[in-house]
């Protein structure tokens, strides 16, 4: 069973972020990088902000990250999350991946124990239909 119920909004891949979701389907947390100059970017965009190349590579992030910020959601913005309240939303950074961050959740944690700077470990949440979503637990 996934962290949120099945009627949770799912990613709907489009032209510009399709490659990102292909990696998730294979349980690989990858950020997009320029195939020419290596500049990292997120969310995916079809052209490099540094050199305007359209060549793309995908770099796999470490499975441990650091909390850049977090919140604790108590209000149901969608009926799907009512049974999951409260939950922790988080912004995670990864060593060696300057300038990109990932919005995610920290699960298996007392919200009161959350701290900016704490280390968290990746786990893959099976949301069905062959798609997996990265969430984290305290390291």
């Amino acid at each position: 069973m996934s962290f949120f119920p099945a009627d949770m909004p799912r990613p709907e891949p489009n032209y510009d972020d399709e490659g990102f979701w292909k990696n998730y389907a294979e349980k690989r947390l990858c950020f997009q990088a320029c195939g020419d100059c290596g500049a990292l970017r997120h969310p995916p965009t079809p052209i490099c902000h540094a050199c305007h190349s359209v060549e793309v590579t995908w770099l796999e992030a470490p499975s441990t990250g650091t909390i850049y910020s977090y919140n604790v959601v108590h209000h149901a913005g969608h009926t799907a999350v009512e049974s999951a309240l409260p939950y922790v939303g988080a912004l995670v950074e990864f060593e060696g991946f300057p300038g990109v961050r990932l919005v995610t959740n920290v699960t298996d944690v007392d919200p009161a124990a959350m701290q900016i700077g704490m280390r968290v470990n990746l786990w893959w949440d099976d949301i069905g239909e062959g798609m997996f979503i990265p969430r984290f637990k305290p390291a």
Binding site: R10, P11, G89
Partner: peptide
């Protein structure tokens, strides 16, 4: 795509990250 699957739906849920 980058926020909804994590239960962040509305400005209060987005800007609270910045506020923290």
């Amino acid at each position: 795509n980058f926020v909804y699957p994590y239960g962040l739906f509305a400005p209060s849920m987005f800007l609270s990250l910045m506020m923290r």
